[in-house]
Design a binder for these strands. Structure first.
Length: 116
DNA sequence: CGGCTGACTCTGG
DNA sequence: TCCAGAGCCAGCC
């Protein structure tokens, strides 16, 4: 477990979000809503805002964060989307013909399902 | 100092 | 079944 208490509650919400994103294991992906639920007192929108405001230099696996559809939240032809998919595939994440990932397989919740 | 914008998701009509 | 609105923090001009 990670001590989220180290962060200032109420202030520095983004930092807590970054902390949670950092918990996503390699080869797994998490959706915005899942991160928001994990952080608590947070909406998926907030996570999106945090990702958009993600400063460079932090060891945050931002590419492991995708939307609820299992799809990258960037325009298909954008360089950011290409880089994200490239990073994910480098970790073993497989995209189908619709460029979507099987959340039941590589989803962060898959860790829990793995225990069952 | 004020207002705009930005990587989402869910519910109602 | 599809569209539209609401919820919401932080950085920047």
């Amino acid at each position: 477990m990670v001590s989220l208490e180290g962060s200032s509650p109420g202030g520095g919400l983004y930092d807590r979000i970054y902390q949670v994103v950092r918990l996503i294991p390699r080869g797994r992906v998490a959706i915005y809503g899942q991160i928001a639920a994990y952080v608590g007192r947070c909406t998926p929108r907030q996570v999106g805002y945090a990702m958009a405001a993600l400063p460079s230099g932090l060891d945050v696996p931002w590419h492991r964060v995708i939307n609820r559809e299992g799809r990258i939240s960037f325009p298909r032809n954008s360089s950011a989307a290409l880089e994200q998919s490239m990073l994910l595939q480098a970790e073993g994440v497989v995209f189908d013909e619709s460029e979507r990932v099987e959340l039941d397989d590589v989803g962060w919740a898959g860790l829990l399902a793995d225990s069952i």
